[in-house]
Design a protein around this nucleic acid. Structure first.
Lengths: 81, 81
DNA sequence: ACGATTCGTTGTGTTTACGCAACAAAAATA
DNA sequence: TATTTTTGTTGCGTAAACACAACGAATCGT
């Protein structure tokens, strides 16, 4: 049970115009924790994943996945956005 | 950051006609771990949550939630199933 | 140019999600 | 009834997700 997990936290955070500190405060964790998550240094707990997804108003699967996410430009070219 | 997390693992597992040992093997964890999760003794990692949701073919939010799940009979009465 | 945010990194400490083993109780099956 | 499977619990050990502090580098606003 050790599969890699990709995430789109940085993308959604940038889209929301938030800093890491702001996101961290909004979900109740340390700013460094957000940084560690964004660059994949470690995987979030389900609790934190649910909280971030809830904050952005998206599903957990849209934020986290075992499969790597395509870049936004790639996704738009394929009409998947 | 310590919110309670409710889950429907036992319901989906029973619906699939699986034992804890079978579910545990399918997602690659110990059978006791499944038991601990089902009775809420501790919260799963996002990795395990994604794996279980993927196995049952449902979204993470359908399996795990900050809000308590209504019983199946209640949900059916309200036409939410 | 200057100060203020933001970001990246390192380190140390704590909590908890696990793995694994053992065993009793309950339930299912023959 | 006898046997097997499933479930519930306890204990011990480890790894990793956090918290917190400190600091340099980069970026932004004035």
């Amino acid at each position: 049970m050790s599969r890699e997990i990709h995430n789109r936290i940085a993308m959604f955070r940038a889209d929301a115009g938030m800093s890491r500190r702001e996101l961290a405060e909004a979900v109740g964790v340390n700013p460094q924790t957000i940084g560690f998550l964004e660059r994949g240094d470690y995987k979030p707990s389900l609790e934190l994943a649910l909280a971030i997804a809830e904050l952005f108003g998206v599903s957990v699967e849209l934020l986290f996945s075992f499969e790597p996410f395509p870049s936004l430009s790639q996704a738009l070219q394929k009409g998947r956005a």
